[in-house]
Amino acid sequence: MANGSRQAAWEFFGAELKRRRENAGITQVELGSRVFVSGGYIGQFEQAIRKPQRDVAERIDEALQTDGIFERMWRQLIKEQRYAEYFAHAAELERLATRFCDWAPAVMPGLLQTPAYTRAIYLASNPLATDQYIDQMVGLRQERAQILADATRPVYWAILHETVLRVPVGSSAVMAEQLDHVATMVRERKVLVQVLPFSAGAHPQMGKMMTLMQFEDAPPTAYTEGVFSGSLLDDPAVVNQTQADYDLLRGAALSLEASLALIESVAEDYRRCRRTT
């Protein structure tokens, strides 16, 4: 299913939700209280700005006595998506965000990855995968990264742990190209990147990637990811705490200028390594 038709399907989901809610004589606030989300979120579901999690779709069916129709629609839409279930909602929100703040403790954020770096990542975790599968995964990630190339791109700020720079992914040539790519994006003023050095020691969100997203007409959201799992955090108190953690990381990281210098220095180290091997 193409992006446009999938969005149209989510719009149908929202329109049907609104129709059935109004037929039941229930306000958005009342339905929200029954399914443990805010009335504003119900409005965003109805406008297809955000997509509900499966458990919310199930509770909507219970509240409106709709015999499982919203849970079934949710399953069909998720089945036809191109991303893993745990990341699908975050991928949808990426297209709507006006500001990103990424924290990367171990691996380069997807939106900054080069094709060769992405290929090395997928081959490391899928050593028996077919070329067709790897090509598909690389293509999807590069498609996501296009939002940073668009004229209307969002503000993007990334904090990379020094581990991301120092641990080789693929060959020295792959790493040099990857770091050169980040440096070029910074110099072209498309992104803001800081590096949290080893010397910073302990820090918030150790070992767990994190993304904060802000929107023009919706509340901010945080996304965290672990091993084959991800969580969208919508609760305002949790999002605020996540933002506070990010602010601490930003304060402990090298300045933008020093970070760029380190990225370019490590890229040169990889080039020297390549020449001597």
Rank of each mutant, 00 (worst) to 15 (best):
Asp150Gly: 01
Asp150Asn: 04
Ala151Cys: 13
Arg153Pro: 01
Pro154Phe: 13
Tyr156Glu: 04
Ile159Trp: 03
His161Glu: 11
Glu162Ser: 11
Val164His: 15
Arg166Thr: 03
Arg166Pro: 03
Val167Glu: 13
Pro168Thr: 12
Gly170Arg: 06
Ser171Thr: 15
Ala173Glu: 10
Ala173Met: 08
Val174Arg: 00
Met175Leu: 13
Met175Tyr: 07
Ala176His: 00
Gln178Gly: 03
Leu179Cys: 05
Leu179Gln: 02
Val182Phe: 00
Val182His: 00
Val182Cys: 01
Ala183Met: 10
Lys190Thr: 05
Val193Thr: 02
Gln194Cys: 01
Val195Thr: 08
Pro197Tyr: 05
Pro197Asn: 07
Phe198Val: 06
Phe198Cys: 04
Ser199His: 08
Ala200Lys: 10
Ala202Asn: 01
Pro204Leu: 04
Pro204Asn: 04
Pro204Gln: 03
Gln205Ala: 12
Met206Phe: 15
Lys208Asp: 13
Met209Ser: 06
Met209Ile: 02
Met210His: 14
Thr211Ser: 06
Met213Tyr: 04
Gln214Val: 11
Phe215Tyr: 09
Glu216Ile: 13
Pro219Gln: 06
Pro219Gly: 07
Thr221Gly: 02
Thr224His: 08
Val227Glu: 13
Val227Cys: 09
Ser229Met: 11
Val239Lys: 00
Gln241Ser: 14
Ala244Glu: 14
Asp247Ser: 10
Leu249Ala: 06
Leu249His: 06
Leu249Gly: 00
Arg250Glu: 11
Leu254His: 15
Ser255His: 08
Leu260Trp: 10
Leu262Gln: 04
Leu262Ala: 08
Ile263Val: 14
Glu264Tyr: 09
Glu264Gln: 15
Glu264Leu: 12
Glu268Ile: 00
Glu268Asp: 06
Asp269Ile: 03
